[in-house]
Amino acid sequence: MVTEVEPLAGEELVTVKIRVFGREDKVVRVPRGSTIERVIRLLSLNPVEVVAAKNGEVVTEEEEVEDGDFIELYSVVSGG
Protein backbone atom coordinates (compact mmCIF):
# COMPACT_ATOMS: atom_id res chain seq x y z
CA MET A 1 0.00 0.00 0.00
CA VAL A 2 1.27 3.47 -0.90
CA THR A 3 0.90 6.26 1.67
CA GLU A 4 0.81 9.56 -0.13
CA VAL A 5 0.90 13.14 1.05
CA GLU A 6 -1.53 15.42 -0.81
CA PRO A 7 0.81 17.69 -2.83
CA LEU A 8 0.30 21.43 -2.93
CA ALA A 9 -0.03 23.05 -6.35
CA GLY A 10 3.21 22.66 -8.26
CA GLU A 11 4.76 20.36 -5.65
CA GLU A 12 6.60 17.32 -6.93
CA LEU A 13 6.33 14.01 -5.06
CA VAL A 14 9.18 11.54 -4.55
CA THR A 15 8.73 7.82 -3.85
CA VAL A 16 10.54 6.23 -0.91
CA LYS A 17 10.57 2.61 0.26
CA ILE A 18 10.45 2.11 4.03
CA ARG A 19 11.20 -1.00 6.08
CA VAL A 20 9.54 -0.58 9.46
CA PHE A 21 11.26 -2.39 12.35
CA GLY A 22 12.35 -5.24 10.08
CA ARG A 23 8.80 -6.47 9.87
CA GLU A 24 6.88 -4.49 7.31
CA ASP A 25 7.69 -2.81 3.99
CA LYS A 26 5.84 0.34 2.96
CA VAL A 27 5.98 2.86 0.13
CA VAL A 28 5.40 6.55 0.78
CA ARG A 29 5.13 9.46 -1.64
CA VAL A 30 6.05 12.78 -0.11
CA PRO A 31 6.88 16.24 -1.50
CA ARG A 32 10.47 16.67 -2.66
CA GLY A 33 12.51 18.19 0.16
CA SER A 34 10.66 16.28 2.90
CA THR A 35 12.75 15.10 5.81
CA ILE A 36 12.90 11.60 7.24
CA GLU A 37 11.21 13.03 10.33
CA ARG A 38 8.22 13.95 8.19
CA VAL A 39 8.08 10.39 6.85
CA ILE A 40 8.29 8.99 10.38
CA ARG A 41 5.39 11.17 11.52
CA LEU A 42 3.43 10.27 8.39
CA LEU A 43 3.63 6.65 9.59
CA SER A 44 2.26 7.76 13.01
CA LEU A 45 5.56 7.02 14.75
CA ASN A 46 7.36 9.14 17.35
CA PRO A 47 10.84 10.24 16.12
CA VAL A 48 12.10 9.87 19.72
CA GLU A 49 11.44 6.12 19.37
CA VAL A 50 12.98 5.62 15.94
CA VAL A 51 16.46 5.54 14.39
CA ALA A 52 16.68 5.72 10.59
CA ALA A 53 19.16 4.36 8.10
CA LYS A 54 19.09 5.77 4.56
CA ASN A 55 20.36 3.42 1.86
CA GLY A 56 22.21 1.44 4.56
CA GLU A 57 23.74 4.39 6.48
CA VAL A 58 22.47 5.60 9.85
CA VAL A 59 21.43 9.25 9.44
CA THR A 60 19.65 11.98 11.42
CA GLU A 61 15.94 12.46 10.87
CA GLU A 62 16.71 15.94 9.54
CA GLU A 63 18.05 14.43 6.28
CA GLU A 64 15.88 14.94 3.24
CA VAL A 65 14.60 11.95 1.33
CA GLU A 66 15.20 11.59 -2.39
CA ASP A 67 13.34 9.69 -5.05
CA GLY A 68 14.10 5.95 -4.82
CA ASP A 69 15.60 6.07 -1.31
CA PHE A 70 15.37 2.98 0.88
CA ILE A 71 14.83 3.92 4.52
CA GLU A 72 15.09 1.36 7.33
CA LEU A 73 13.52 2.31 10.63
CA TYR A 74 14.83 0.75 13.84
CA SER A 75 12.78 0.73 17.02
CA VAL A 76 14.38 2.36 20.04
CA VAL A 77 11.75 0.77 22.26
CA SER A 78 12.75 -2.85 22.43
CA GLY A 79 10.17 -4.03 24.92
CA GLY A 80 11.79 -6.80 26.82
Binding site: V48, V51, V58, Y74, V76, V77
Partner: peptide
Protein backbone atom coordinates in the same frame (compact mmCIF):
# COMPACT_ATOMS: atom_id res chain seq x y z
CA UNK B 1 18.10 4.90 24.86
CA UNK B 2 18.11 6.30 21.32
CA UNK B 3 21.84 7.03 21.51
CA UNK B 4 22.43 3.50 22.73
CA UNK B 5 20.65 2.12 19.64
CA UNK B 6 22.65 4.34 17.27
CA UNK B 7 25.92 3.26 18.91
CA UNK B 8 24.94 -0.43 18.71
CA UNK B 9 24.19 -0.04 14.98
CA UNK B 10 27.49 1.74 14.35
Amino acid sequence: EKESLVYSLI
